[in-house]
Design a protein around this nucleic acid. Sequence first.
DNA 1: TAGTGGTCTAGACCACGGG
DNA 2: CCGTGGTCTAGACCACTAA
Lengths: 233, 233
Amino acid sequence: MKASTPLYNQLAEQLRQEICAGKFSQGEKIPSEFELSSLYNVSRSTVRKAISVLVSENLLEKAHGKGTFVSSPKINQNSSGFLSFTENVKSMGKTLITKTIHIAHVVPTDHQKRFFKLDEGKELLQIERLRYIDNNPICIETSWFTTAYDSLQKKNLNGSLYAVLRNDYNIHPLTGSKTIELCYASLDEAALLDIPRGTALMLIEDQVYDNYEKPLHISKQVLRGDKFRYALK
Amino acid sequence: MKASTPLYNQLAEQLRQEICAGKFSQGEKIPSEFELSSLYNVSRSTVRKAISVLVSENLLEKAHGKGTFVSSPKINQNSSGFLSFTENVKSMGKTLITKTIHIAHVVPTDHQKRFFKLDEGKELLQIERLRYIDNNPICIETSWFTTAYDSLQKKNLNGSLYAVLRNDYNIHPLTGSKTIELCYASLDEAALLDIPRGTALMLIEDQVYDNYEKPLHISKQVLRGDKFRYALK
DNA sequence: TAGTGGTCTAGACCACGGG
DNA sequence: CCGTGGTCTAGACCACTAA
């Protein structure tokens, strides 16, 4: 356990791995601050700092006098507002089905080139998925990854993308930005969502970085506004 | 400087007041951690904790090797996503005009009663304002306060409500929740926003608490979707 | 009462920025 | 070089929870 990255970050990453690997299950208590302190031979302050990082990522929760626990419904892989759609919906007791519509290599837009810091001529992996809640099509999600993630094509993408990234790539979406605006259904979107063309929709765009602070993906979600409300904090 | 509230919170509140009172101006350097430590007779850790609170509120910014500075454009009175509309828009170089449409006492809904923990029979102060960006009506904002803020009626409400709360009441909006969804223009809304009835709009609802963790206000903003994009982080 | 997280201290050394 | 914030330690006491 030595590197140029701060001790508390190393410890945080260590715990993050263990939590995501399922070493501790939902709602389970992790060792106390004193125990972690002697386990890893670091001071209690360092342990506290590491834990505070994971708390801010919503991976852990503290309870004064009781202990520190793995966040119960494993929603929120990442900080404020960057819930995975899957977990977000599941936590409301709804049935979620995802169908992969189309996977292809595409030429990036200028905007995408900048975000991914792409060299000229490089393409992106584009994944289009349709999501149903209680059997109603509610969301068309288009995600773009660099070709480093080409092997995603062979995975089962009909669940949470973030779960696949976590389990198969050991990648954790951490930070990013999000914009929300209105749009109107195109012909294709109308057909997929089973609504009239021109119906107002919510358009949510995310730019997400991973736990190594590298660009991970861009995604665009088009959602039926009559069925969806976006909640923050 | 003694109470049951933690030292670092007392110090944070102290600094918050001084910053908002203009003791330090935009972009100005505040005393170093060592100086604050000896000024207030607390340890450097306590100073750091206090500062970290204000950094998370976007009131301060740190620069390694240089110092700690008051956030330059005094946008963001509050944490993630709770920008004041005024500052948010101004920071984009647009002209913002606000017109107060209607102020009245109203009977609270059940939802409002719960949020404000209102006794039976108590009313709320309702403030309706219309906001223009570059002379286009773009947002109808309805805010509710307890009658403790009745004197708001005598203030100039054609600017930032948060600025009035800060300067005249010494109240700082700190935390809260926000939901974003779609809605369609009612007759009144259509007239005010100069759009056809039934046009799709964004509806943003906020529930905000002040720096004493007391319910401060609820507000509902109805925004023209063709002119507005909501950005997070 | 024992064990947990919450606060606070005093002091050390490192890493960055600017003269 | 100096002064800044960043990391880290060791140890103290308090506040909360549960048996």
